[in-house]
């Protein structure tokens, strides 16, 4: 009797120690992250939150911060002439562009999933912008002053663009109005949109490849048209990836270096040395981003039920 009890307690002890050993090794594995996160994320985050309530002055000995309350926030939102405008503009652009990016990348992924000659080559090209349109190259790529300047020099007389022409004609007939405006900006930004959808295409593509052929064959036997099997099979199967792509698109948009708000924050910090003010602006920006991602996640996870 006593022997069984001691045995049981010993085995429990052993199991417990095994479990805690695993826990310790787990912590050892993620230790670099914990250290980095505390030292280079949590600490600076709190620090910058504090700075956003302060007037920060620098001297060779270190920095001095004087607490001034909400002044930096008030200044960003009500006094500064540019910040509000930039913020709303960037958010508008973000909404239209990320919708366009999602649709475009989904269509391209559908196309690239079909079998045709040169498919690998086409995939390689669509993925190229992920590598080339990042960092310093974004600013230079999108700033097509080279082309604009050259065009002016080369073709002073022949300055007619197809989309502009279409636009004026349609505007004169008075169709659409606001909607048309959005459509035309999207057409003109097609380059930006295609450039920004490399990762999303690959994510959708990898999802499409996991759908078994048998599902489509069954639907075909049952007499479903291509259109129906798209909405009944393809779309639901891929919808779990929609959230991944939405979040990735939003984050990618907000962190791009050619973003106006980012530029302003950077400029205030590096050139004007307004550390408190730039911290306040980046906090406003950050909170809005998080809120937007939260709302999107909520809507999509409500509206989309994943098949797993």
């Amino acid at each position: 009797m006593t022997r069984t009890i001691t045995q049981a307690s010993a085995s429990r002890k052993l199991r417990y120690s095994m479990k805690s050993r695993r826990a310790v090794s787990g912590y050892l594995f993620i230790l670099p992250f914990i250290v980095g996160f505390l030292a280079f994320m949590v600490y600076p985050l709190i620090d910058s939150l504090y700075m956003s309530f302060c007037e920060v002055k620098l001297s060779p000995q270190g920095r001095t911060s004087v607490f001034i309350g909400l002044y930096n926030y008030v200044r960003a939102l009500t006094i500064d002439p540019e910040f509000n405008r930039m913020l709303t503009e960037e958010f508008q652009r973000m909404v239209t562009q990320s919708l366009a990016i999602l649709v475009v990348s989904f269509i391209i992924a559908l196309l690239l999933n079909q079998k045709f000659k040169g498919r690998t080559f086409a995939r390689a090209i669509f993925f190229l912008p992920v590598i080339l349109a990042s960092g310093v190259l974004v600013g230079i790529e999108t700033d097509n002053t080279l082309l604009a300047g050259m065009k002016d020099l080369i073709a002073n007389s022949n300055n007619f663009s197809m989309t502009e022409g279409m636009r004026t004609i349609l505007m004169l007939t008075g169709i659409g109005g606001g909607v048309l405006d959005v459509v035309f900006t999207l057409i003109q930004e097609l380059y930006d949109i295609v450039i920004a959808s490399g990762i999303q295409i690959i994510v959708f593509l990898s999802g499409l490849q996991t759908i078994g052929r048998s599902l489509y064959e069954a639907a075909d036997v049952e007499g479903a048209t291509k259109w129906e099997s798209f909405w009944m099979i393809t779309f639901p199967m891929i919808s779990s990836l929609l959230l991944v792509n939405v979040i990735y698109t939003i984050i990618d948009f907000f962190m791009k270096t050619d973003n106006e708000v980012m530029e302003k924050i950077q400029e205030e910090m590096v050139i004007n040395l307004n550390y408190g003010f730039s911290s306040a602006m980046s906090w406003i920006y950050f909170i809005l981003t998080i809120a937007l991602i939260g709302v999107c996640t909520f809507i999509i996870s409500k509206g989309v039920h994943s098949y797993e």
Binding site: M41, D47, Q266, S279, S282, T289
Partner: peptide, 19 residues
């Protein structure tokens, strides 16, 4: 925290990191 790391724009903490 890992997810947060993906979401936080590095610009938010840049001024603090700089100093």
């Amino acid at each position: 925290c890992v997810v947060l790391l993906i979401v936080i724009p590095p610009q938010t903490i840049s001024s603090s990191l700089y100093l």
